[in-house]
Write a protein that binds this DNA or RNA. Structure first.
Length: 257
DNA sequence: ATGGTTGTTCCACAA
């Protein structure tokens, strides 16, 4: 079973590229972030006609997440628990073929010094609490998405320039490590322990893509039972080079059984 | 020090 995560930066602007990539990569589950549309405006009919089941949590203008699956999705959750007043569409979760899959779009947190940064850290508090709850069930799960966190300096093209950014600050990285310390495994590093400078995002500005100056911020965190079954994880750079590309490229993980 | 894009919406903001 191939699970992919892709921040597509508007599902409407990116639908042709999404359909091309689904056709050639043939994933079984796709976690999408930044669909940037309200739920009724999601291209559900087009995707269902191609055999996809869709779980969608949209929002006007910003954010928005969706989970596509070849097999039906059950036990759907459309918000991260822990703050009923949070109206930002950043989390959906469903069970597909016995595997529980969370699709998340973690807050960016910039500029640090505004309310955006504490919102990010508080959102990660809630994610830690939610992961603890999932672990108690002792069933395999995957938390996939745009974490807006560079876990280490190896994941940044210029660590000094990015040191104070919300994606790299020590408090952000400490929150990410709390997830690992629960017993979750970061899938890309499991299979690529000695490959610094592998990125999943390249800014549109300043020639970052042609110079390969990127960040690795799209991740898979695996529960112990999911980690046991993981067979591969990699970044598919190809779609970032296409015309009208998203600034993120897909990351995928294979889970056996 | 500067660089200088994209999508959505409205006359900026978020990334």
């Amino acid at each position: 079973m191939i699970i992919a995560t892709w921040n597509i930066n508007s599902v409407k602007a990116r639908l042709p590229l999404l359909l091309d990539w689904l056709d050639q990569a043939k994933p079984d589950v796709v976690c999408l972030q930044e669909i940037k549309c309200q739920t009724p405006d999601f291209p559900r009919l087009e995707l269902e006609a191609l055999g996809w089941h869709c779980v969608v949590q949209g929002q006007k203008s910003y954010n928005g997440v969706a989970l596509l699956s070849r097999e039906p999705a059950t036990d759907v959750i459309t918000a991260l628990p822990g703050d009923p007043s949070d109206e930002q569409a950043r989390y959906v979760q469903a069970t597909v073929s016995g595997l529980r899959i969370g699709c998340l779009y973690l807050p960016n947190g910039n500029p640090v010094g505004t309310e955006k940064y504490p919102y990010k850290l508080a959102w990660m508090d809630r994610l830690v609490t939610h992961a603890e709850q999932l672990l108690r069930a002792e069933t395999p799960f995957v938390l996939a998405g745009d974490y807006n966190i560079c876990p280490t300096d190896d994941d940044v093209y210029d660590p000094v320039a990015w040191r104070e950014d919300a994606l790299c600050r020590p408090e952000s990285r400490a929150q990410f490590r709390r997830l690992l310390n629960l017993g979750l495994t970061e899938a890309f590093r499991l299979f690529h322990p000695d490959e610094p400078h592998r990125y999943s995002f390249w800014d549109y500005q300043a020639g970052r893509w042609p110079r390969d100056q990127g960040l690795r911020i799209d991740h898979f965190l695996l529960s112990p039972q999911a980690s046991d079954r993981a067979t591969a994880c990699d970044i598919d750079k190809t779609p970032r080079g296409w015309e009208k590309a998203s600034d993120h490229t897909p990351v995928w993980c294979e889970i056996s059984g």
